[in-house]
Design a protein around this nucleic acid. Structure first.
Length: 210
DNA sequence: GACCAGGCACATC
DNA sequence: GATGTGCATGGT
């Protein structure tokens, strides 16, 4: 049973690592920005980019939206892919400001399903980024899947190796309680163990999952 | 110097 | 619908 396996994985990781206090961001808006900047990028590089934005006094949806693309790109340069990420961030900001006035509280009032559809319509926001924003910035109960989730589930034989995003997400959504805090903690633990042991070249023999 | 990192969109077959 | 490619910095 997949649900039993998932619970066991969670229990093992929580015992080993304890609570992770994720996502590293002081505000929901900072988490949203981070979710886009971290696409295929190490978090430490994202932190540098966010620090640049903060130091410029520009960590604000309307201020960032007004910024010329080139100026935004130069601020987020350390996060890599800075030209394309400047565009993607702008696309999100346009949506966030136009539809919700740049207010996290207004956005939170809308249902998970509708927000997910809206986010996926923004060019540059795919399933993982959308779900990261939903869970970590808006406290909506959806499980975030990523490269580590893929590796762990495939290496434990829980999904096929040609699994796509939905195939990874389904087992979590179908067999676990829909609780934002719990999903938050579980995904954070997966990243934690993934960073250390579930690399492209795995260190399974030392991994707490076995 | 090669390899890796909380992806995504777009082109081409 | 599968498969390939561009996007780019900074740490190991």
């Amino acid at each position: 049973m997949v649900s039993t396996q998932l619970r066991k994985i969670y229990t093992t990781l929580f015992k080993e690592f304890g609570p992770q206090h994720w996502w590293p961001g002081e505000t929901s808006f900072e988490v949203m920005v981070g979710a886009i900047l971290t696409q295929n990028t190490n978090w430490s590089n994202v932190e540098k980019a966010i620090t640049n934005i903060k130091n410029a006094g520009l960590l604000d949806p309307k201020k960032l939206l007004k910024l010329p693309d080139q100026r935004l790109a130069s601020l987020i340069r350390p996060a890599g892919y800075f030209n394309i990420k400047a565009k993607r961030l702008k696309n999100f900001l346009r949506y966030f400001v136009d539809k919700y006035g740049g207010s996290v509280a207004s956005m939170k009032k809308v249902s998970l399903e509708r927000l997910r559809t809206e986010l996926l319509e923004v060019n540059g926001i795919g399933q993982e980024t959308a779900d990261s924003i939903l869970l970590y910035a808006l406290d909506k109960p959806i499980f975030v899947c990523d490269a580590y989730t893929y590796r762990i589930l495939t290496r434990h034989g829980l999904v096929d190796k040609n699994a796509v995003y939905n195939d990874l997400q389904e087992p979590f959504m179908d067999s676990l309680k829909h609780d934002a805090k719990f999903f938050n903690e579980f995904h954070a633990l997966i990243v934690r163990v993934g960073k250390e042991y579930c690399k492209p070249v795995p260190r399974c023999s030392e991994c707490p999952l076995k």
